[in-house]
Amino acid sequence: MSLINYASREVNCKLVYYGPGLGGKTTNLEYIYEKVAPASKGKMISLATETERTLFFDFLPVDLGTIRGFKTRFHLYTVPGQVYYNASRRLILRGVDGVVFVADSQLDRMEANLESMQNLYDNMAQHGLDLTRIPFVIQYNKRDLPNAAPVTQLEEAINPGWPVSNPARQQPTPNPYRPGELLISEMNGAWIERVPYFEGVASRGEGVFDTLRAVSKMVLKTLG
């Protein structure tokens, strides 16, 4: 939940990177930390195990500067991907404004992706939040690996879309990030909505800022 602090003139928004273990969530944050101008970033905190697996979360504050008199900041978090750290994942989702799901494109990680997506939906629901109603994007990471599944196959499995019940929104809606593709479309007589997706190779930084830019703009629009 974004906090607009009129006393200290600050706007803070919380973004959470979610997804299966070893999918590249921390790598996304590390790349952002490396590339963002020093004046715009705070300290990156990693609560990790000795083997550098995320134990609780990684955290990186990114400062947009002062906009219309308000110091505007995004708080970026990752969650631990391993199945047995669910209590930690649920805690980090508290007060979330936008979610990036970092999927592992490798064919043999498909099950792990689906399990993590279901887990995200369930944990959001426990906070009274509906994943289909908050800013949400998917990043298909590790596109450079030889066993990466085709994006169409990943989309079908991970981003099949949800029904659009509001008649006013039942119209073909272009995907602003993918010319020629639709976010809202009619399939077999039913209207469905998918979330924007991005292809990434986070270890080289590919797709990292496209993903962050999209989700952060979606969050800002909820304030306007």
């Binding site: 706007v11 963002v36 219309r68 505007t72 602003p176 800022f209 304030l223 306007g224």
Partner: peptide, 29 residues
């Protein structure tokens, strides 16, 4: 009372913040 319009932030905030995102995160999406 800062916006007087029911919006959480005043008009123009979102547009300016988006420009700043493009500047900081590398160009328009």
């Amino acid at each position: 009372g800062a916006t007087g319009s029911g919006r959480a932030v005043e008009g123009g905030f979102v547009g300016e913040a988006e420009d700043e995102i493009d500047r900081l995160f590398g160009g328009p999406a």
